[in-house]
């Protein structure tokens, strides 16, 4: 009896020993900057040291509430997330079902589907920027020569088209990531469930609705959490594709924070933007986590 207790204790101790270094590293590189950002956002200081740090309370947050560029950035971020995630999910499920079937050239198809995701976002974005170009871009050349358009379409320079153009790039790139996670879920569904379904005379659609989809709930939620967090802090995409333009139509929160911090060198106000963004993402994750828990 005593021996088992000791073994348990020892196991626990070993576990703690293994976890401690990781916890320390996470605390240093993750938690410290978060605390530092919060501290910065409640104070005023100058980066050249001419003005030492002093507490100003909610001053930066009050300014934020009246800052139209911040509200615009928040709106852009939500719009981008709300438009891209459902499309990515739908396309991701479709691709996963496709990849799960056995057909000739399956390996090649899987490779092709994963390719956009494997490329760095910045590189992807530059390729797309070139294709969207209204003077020498691929899309306009096709549209003009086939007679679909009688004048060049300015995909990235038109305020009403830029967001859509950006969503297309995001969907193209990250649907395959969704597909990958969902595919893993698909392959863990026991085959005998489908056999049983077929014996009961289920159609393909009924199989999908009543077996596949309910059992995919977990993987789908995981994919949604990861992708939503990505979308809520999207930076490389607007930075490289449009630089937030035209007229801030694609300026995401991250891009706005970047400009405040690195162009205006206003670290305190920039920290306030970052803290709000942190809270938004935190709230979003909480909603998902609660949804996940209810499932179990």
């Amino acid at each position: 009896m005593n021996r088992t207790m000791n073994l348990e204790q020892r196991t626990a101790l070993t576990g703690i020993g293994f976890v401690t270094p990781t916890v320390i590293i996470i605390a240093l590189i993750l938690i410290y900057p978060i605390i530092q950002s919060v501290v910065l956002s409640f104070g005023q200081s100058s980066i050249d040291g001419s003005e030492p740090y002093h507490f100003v309370g909610l001053q930066h947050y009050a300014k934020l509430m009246g800052d139209s560029q911040f509200w615009n950035a928040l709106g852009v971020t939500f719009t981008f997330t709300a438009l891209s995630i459902p499309l990515e999910l739908a396309l991701g499920i479709g691709l996963a079902l496709l990849m799960n079937e056995s057909f000739k050239g399956k390996g090649l198809a899987r490779l092709a589907i994963l390719f956009p995701w494997a490329l760095p976002t910045a590189l992807n974005t530059l390729i797309w920027r070139w294709m969207y170009n209204s003077d020498y871009g691929l899309f306009n050349a096709v549209a003009l020569q086939s007679g679909l358009a009688d004048r060049p379409i300015n995909f990235l320079g038109d305020t009403s088209l830029a967001m859509g153009s950006m969503v297309v790039v995001a969907v193209w790139k990250t649907s395959s990531f969704m597909a990958l996670i969902i595919l893993a879920g698909l392959q863990s569904i026991p085959k005998d469930l489908f056999e049983a379904g077929r014996m009961d005379g289920m159609t393909k659609w009924q199989e999908f609705r009543q077996i596949t989809l309910p059992l995919l709930k977990g993987p789908i939620l995981v994919a949604l959490i990861i992708r939503s967090m990505d979308a809520l802090r999207t930076f490389e995409l607007p930075f490289n594709l449009t630089d937030g333009g035209p007229v801030n139509a694609t300026e995401s929160l991250s891009l706005y924070a970047y400009k405040v911090i690195f162009d205006f060198l206003d670290f305190n106000f920039g920290a306030a933007v970052v803290v709000v963004q942190f809270l938004v993402i935190f709230a979003m994750s909480l909603i998902y986590v609660i949804a996940l828990r209810n499932k179990d």
Binding site: S134, D135, G157
Partner: peptide, 20 residues
């Protein structure tokens, strides 16, 4: 052109150099 709203110096230079 409408595209001037997305042009940086070198984009304009490219068009001009192409004789456009």
């Amino acid at each position: 052109p409408d595209s001037i709203l997305t042009m940086k110096p070198d984009d304009a230079r490219t068009l001009f150099q192409q004789g456009r």
